[in-house]
């Protein structure tokens, strides 16, 4: 890669670094996997950067790469949705309430169990603060599709959070 291309890439990348890391962390569940995903995304993005004609679409391009890599990893089952306790440590500064920390963990775990596309939509919209148009460009599909995924994702997440687990059901049957 030529120096001017590197500079251009860095110039475009820097403003969205935090957003990308937030996305990777939310979608992969823990910091180590998020960092791996970040690095893979950046390297893959650099490779294809030359072919990117419209540099204004860089953000969509970068997030599309991240989404595709995430899907590939999930497909290969190399990805483990495991919540990192470090996250809780980081949160503990802002919240002293242990219950809310547990809630945070539970909601995150449940979110990771949503269908990948649905979880991505939720993360891109709520955590990366992307517009619906941007999300539709990243994920493909129509604007209404994104809206639908967003609505259904929240609904499903809520129902998952409030439904008793299979083991809870088993417990009801088994206990004296």
């Amino acid at each position: 890669m030529k120096n001017n291309q590197q500079k251009e890439f860095i110039k475009l990348y820097d403003p969205i670094h935090n957003q990308l890391f937030g996305f990777c962390r939310a979608i992969s569940g823990n910091v180590q996997d998020a960092e791996d995903l970040m690095q893979d995304t950046v390297l893959t993005a650099i490779e294809g950067f030359k072919k990117l004609r419209d540099k204004s679409a860089f953000k969509s391009y970068l997030f599309s790469v991240a989404c595709n890599l995430n899907k590939m990893k999930a497909r290969r089952k190399k990805f483990r949705a495991e919540f990192n306790k470090q996250e809780l440590m980081q949160l503990s500064d802002s919240s002293k309430n242990p219950e809310s920390l547990v809630d945070f963990q539970i909601i995150h775990e449940k979110m990771l169990k949503l269908p990948a596309r649905m979880a991505e939509t939720l993360v891109l919209f709520h955590i990366c603060d992307m517009s619906l148009e941007d999300i539709s460009k990243i994920q493909g599909g129509s604007l209404s599709g994104v809206k639908l995924r967003l609505k259904r994702g929240r609904k499903k997440l809520l129902s998952m959070l409030n439904s008793p687990s299979e083991m809870k059901k088993a417990l009801l049957f088994l206990t004296i």
Partner: peptide, 28 residues
Amino acid sequence: DIDRFFERFKQLPNNYQLDKIHELIKRF
């Protein structure tokens, strides 16, 4: 609760230094 979760997630500090990415790009 879901909104609160997303809000709090956004507030998580970014541990991944930008310099690391710059280095990665330059090493490419």
